[in-house]
């Protein structure tokens, strides 16, 4: 089963490839846009995850 992180990376990969193909024609520009979107999404996700790390996690789930 995929982890949270791998699912996030997969999602970012799909979306980045999609918008790269949709908006750019030249190879160099495609690579640039792909990296911008992909790194932005994965890096942004990691950044937000770390920012949330310091928040309290809340009460433990009740035992069923």
């Amino acid at each position: 089963m995929l982890s949270h992180f791998l699912l996030m990376v997969l999602y970012a990969l799909i979306v980045s490839l999609f918008f790269t193909l949709l908006w750019r024609r030249e190879r160099k520009e495609q690579i640039k846009l792909f990296l911008e979107i992909f790194v932005g999404m994965v890096g942004g996700g990691l950044l937000v995850a770390w920012l949330m790390y310091y928040f309290p996690s809340g009460p433990p789930a009740p035992i069923p």
Binding site: M1, L2, L7, Y11, I14, V15, F18
Partner: peptide
Amino acid sequence: GAGYEYGTAFLLTGGLM
């Protein structure tokens, strides 16, 4: 399911794309 929220996001994204 464990992947419910993720799956929903992927399905919605497929439609929107």
